[in-house]
Design a protein around this nucleic acid. Structure first.
Length: 522
RNA sequence: GCUCGCUUGGUGUAGCCCGGCCAAUCAUAUCGGCCUUUCGAGCCGAUGACAGGGGUUCAAAUCCCCUAGCGAGCACCA
């Protein structure tokens, strides 16, 4: 009896037991723990990226997890751009759409897209209300001076200003009557709170630089993250917040504002930082940006860059990334993501559709070597896919072939050219032996890949470790850009371009290539 | 310095709130076998973990304390 039969029989004997078993199965499929206090149809979550550059792989975690939860609970997925710093983390105008595109690649679509920089008037309104509730005060202390007072749990003289004065000075902030550093609005929390991080934090400050978005360029008084994000989460009905441990004090800070307004704070989950193995490059927008500017990387989609654009160009499916990210769970500790688990998932996703081809690599330590075949058929005909004979067979001209030096048999020994037959190495040439498969099965002849010496395509394969040159079999020319294929005994690749134009950067195409492919994984 | 948090095999994770069914789950990785004209896949098997110490208890991965290690916040960044 197999599993299905056993279940059917159990269903007859004891339907309740079967239902229980199936419920367990369903629970097991959840990589992510259930959300606290979550009800189907009432969950609202948000990703709040700062659009200051394209995303690295770590950024995939938030949309992956939120999107997955939104699907599980039939909830809402808000994408809110927290672009309230026109200066130090200055938004990149291209990043807004690039980020939405990356979310789309992961297979999710936000229900709502917001930009904080569109919502300044809303923040001002709430600040005014907070002032009226005696929950905030304008402060002209130099930052350093206040820091010392705070460290000693001492209030500054501005804390006791009357509301009218505070209101007046805040309106002057909005009107742009101060320069950066001259005046801030602080939330009145508890100046003696045992955690210094929570004492009278800044809600609004003056910024001299104009916001890059035209719609927001006229504002000089900008909210800080904790104020803006706290107000927006409430106003947009967010029920569950997920954020990094770097923001673990944010909820505690924002609670003071929520208490003034009588709002209920959402559920909060924190998680640690993600590190990736495999890459030499740090998972940091600024680091990657710098390496591109220095010419170390050819761009955000360089295969050596740990970015979403890069893995996408390499033919990794968004789903593979989502599975890996949700598999990391919701732990508060820092985690290392093994790229091998992304690759394992992706392999399952593309193996069935990826047709097989040959690529003979030509490397310094393992060059392609040429051999003329004496006797034997004119061509080999290996299948396009071992599990799909219906897709037909390739035609690979034989005659004179290339194989990788490491695959070359010793003088007098035999090797099986896959899809062709068995040959023997004799005086720098191959002698036809035959196509009796028992040679492989019973006599242990190695099976290797090969390409014709004359008709093959000059190929550049871009990998995480750098580029590899080689020769691909002729039929690769018939593929479409974007196709995922497997170079047998080499690995899966995505076809990126035919006859690419040369690029000035090191590591890019030189103009010699017939085809450029990006290496996915083995 | 003050405050907060974390620590399960190579990696990730489940279990911890509500102690016993945990001689600890699942995935990945590595190794071996079967199958296969390669690789991959599939099937079978193996490897391998509760940071350390103390306490409470009939019973601790789970509760308490201490130590160590790691991380984060104390920004007019997000």
């Amino acid at each position: 009896m197999d599993e299905a039969e056993r279940r059917e029989r159990l269903g007859d004997l004891d339907p309740d037991a079967l239902a229980e078993l199936e419920a367990e199965d369903e629970a097991d499929e959840h990589e992510l723990p259930d959300l606290p206090n979550a009800e189907a149809g009432e969950v609202v979550m948000r990703a709040a990226p700062n659009p200051n550059g394209p995303w690295h792989i770590g950024h995939a975690r938030m949309p992956s997890v939120i999107g997955t939860y939104a699907e599980r609970y039939d909830g809402e997925f808000i994408c809110r751009f927290d672009d309230t710093d026109p200066e130090t983390k200055r938004p990149d105008l291209d990043a807004y759409d690039a980020i939405l595109d990356d979310i789309d690649y992961l297979g999710f679509k936000p229900d709502v897209v917001l930009k904080a920089s569109d919502r300044l008037e809303t923040y001002y309104e709430h600040a005014r209300e907070l002032i009226d509730l005696d929950g905030a005060y304008t402060c002209s202390c130099p930052a350093e001076e206040f820091r010392e007072l705070k460290a000693d749990a001492e209030p500054c003289p501005h804390r006791e200003k009357d509301a009218a004065t505070v209101r007046e000075e805040f309106e002057a902030m909005i009107a742009g009557e101060y320069d950066a550093g001259e005046m801030v609005l602080r939330v009145k929390t508890d100046i003696e709170h045992k955690n210094p991080a929570l004492r009278d934090w800044v809600a609004f400050r003056m910024v001299d630089a104009a916001h890059p978005r035209e719609e927001a360029a006229g504002y000089d008084c900008w909210p800080m993250l904790d104020f803006q994000s706290g107000v927006d989460d409430h106003l947009t009905g967010v029920t569950h917040i997920i954020r990094g441990i770097d923001l673990q004090d944010s909820a505690k800070r924002q609670r003071f504002v929520y208490d003034y307004f009588g709002w209920e704070y959402p559920e909060v989950l924190h998680w640690g930082h993600v590190q990736l193995d495999e890459y030499d490059v740090k998972l940091s927008t600024s680091t990657i940006k710098a390496l591109i500017e220095e010419g170390e990387l050819t761009g955000w989609d360089d295969p050596r860059a740990p970015t979403i654009k890069s893995v996408r160009r390499r033919g990794i499916r968004g789903q593979a990334l989502v599975d890996a990210m949700t598999g990391l769970g919701m732990s508060t500790s820092d985690v290392d993501l093994a790229m091998s688990s992304v690759y394992a998932t992706n392999r399952e996703l593309i193996d069935d559709e990826a047709d097989r081809y040959f690529l003979v690599r030509d490397r310094d330590d393992d060059p392609a070597v040429e051999r003329e075949i004496a006797g034997g058929p004119d061509a080999g005909h290996p299948p396009r896919h071992p599990n799909h004979e219906d897709r037909g067979r390739r035609e690979i001209p034989a005659g004179t072939v290339l194989i990788e030096e490491r695959d070359l048999p010793a003088e007098g020994d035999r090797v099986w050219l896959k899809g062709y037959g068995c040959v023997r190495e004799a005086d720098g040439a191959f002698e036809w032996v035959g196509d009796d498969i028992d040679l492989v099965r019973e006599e242990g002849v190695d099976v290797v890949h090969w390409v014709p010496a004359a008709e093959s395509l000059v190929t550049r394969m871009r990998t995480v470790e750098g580029d590899v040159l080689g020769y691909a079999e002729p039929e690769v020319a018939d593929l479409e850009v974007g196709a995922s294929i497997q170079f047998e005994r080499v690995g899966f690749v995505r076809v990126d371009a035919f006859d690419p134009a040369p690029t000035p950067e090191d590591g890019g195409p030189t103009g010699e290539e017939d085809v450029v492919v990006y290496y996915s994984h083995d």
